[in-house]
Design a protein around this nucleic acid. Structure first.
Lengths: 203, 203
DNA sequence: CAATACTAAACAAACGTTTAATTTAAACAA
DNA sequence: TTGTTTAAATTAAACGTTTGTTTAGTATTG
């Protein structure tokens, strides 16, 4: 791992925890064990460090979804595998996705936010294709596709990102971080799969 | 409206737009047309202003949900009215709920966050009662109640709060703010009602 | 020896908060 | 109604920190 990546990993951790604005370059440098000036040296500015972080982590899901759209024909099976991959990815990179979704709650359209928006829109586009194809194949009934995608994103975010609330609702042990609990993840997958099957097929 | 409330309204607007950390007391005072010192004078500190804001807006939904639980017997009808009230409230106070849900994405447990958490947990408790009662009356089938609530919260947040993304997915005119579009709200209600009915009854 | 990596120190700007002085508003007595 | 008193409301200015960034100089490395 290069020093640059090392800084990005620490940045992800701190920004996920405290938010972008509340994360100072000094705390970042301190945690990464480097000099403050290195952030400007490597990235130019704090803002550009953030953009670099987005570049660093993005694109994984879209590639996976595109593969699924090409290689799995059965709409229901494909949907299950999509949920499986989606939940896996978000749980394994929950910090980054917390940053993404927190940023999407902003109303300001900065350069970084436009980047994030494009990444998520492409992912959404692949999911849309899945549902449309299933509808065309008469496996899925007609649903509000756009709101279905919003529901999917919103639910996963709520479960994996907004865990301060959800872990309390679900009542998991607050000592063990729910996001690292394998059982919690499996339960999320089962819930989402059942929900989407019922919603899309009516059965 | 008192001066105090006037400050709270402006605070809500700015914090919803830029986040708590990124909202300076000076920009707040400027927009409210008051002196910076008035914030300390009325609230003591920036942090306490935030707590005052939470107090100022909280509690509305819980009272509504409690009334529904007492007065409406049919589980399905009650669920529909709950969704109706929930969506109405969040759309009419979308700025405040953006603040709430952004804060719930944090991992830090400050005094303010504990306040927010308690408010939302009480709301969730009322929804839980609704689902449990419907289950007992054999109108609803057995579902993962906790995750169902998380799905409900997550979906509404996604639709109403994270509108930078969702309005693009849904494809509404970005000129007209979707949150103020009556049709968008109606569509959200229809979607959620259908989704929950199918999910809870299997029909 | 030249280029890259790194550091400590300083920079101006912005932050939340406090101070001390001033204006405003209400209450009271003549 | 008038002038006086008193407390609340409001102000401009300054406080000490902390912010992101830059500079100028020092190690390190190929």
């Amino acid at each position: 791992m290069t020093k640059r990546e090392q800084i990005l990993e620490v940045a992800e951790e701190l920004i996920a925890e405290n938010g972008f604005e509340a994360t100072s370059v000094r705390s970042l440098a301190s945690k990464a064990g480097i000099n403050v000036a290195m952030i400007s040296y490597y990235f130019g500015s704090k803002e550009k460090l953030f953009e670099a972080l987005v570049e660093y982590r993005a694109g994984f899901l879209r590639e996976k979804f595109q593969t699924l759209n090409k290689e799995v024909e059965d709409p229901l099976l494909r949907m299950e595998q999509m949920i499986d991959a989606y939940v896996d990815r978000i749980f394994s990179h929950h910090r980054f996705h917390r940053i993404l979704h927190r940023q999407m709650m902003s109303t300001k359209s900065t350069v970084s936010n436009e980047n994030i928006l494009n990444i998520l829109l492409k992912n959404a586009g692949e999911v849309k294709k899945m549902i449309q194809d299933g509808e065309q194949k008469k496996v899925f009934r007609k649903v509000d596709i756009e709101f279905t995608i919003a529901m999917l994103i919103g639910t996963i975010s709520q479960i994996a990102v907004s865990c301060l609330l959800t872990s309390r609702i679900v009542g998991v042990n607050p000592n063990t971080e729910s996001i690292h609990d394998e059982q919690y993840k499996v339960r999320a997958k089962i819930f989402l799969t059942n929900l989407m099957r019922t919603h899309l097929t009516g059965k």
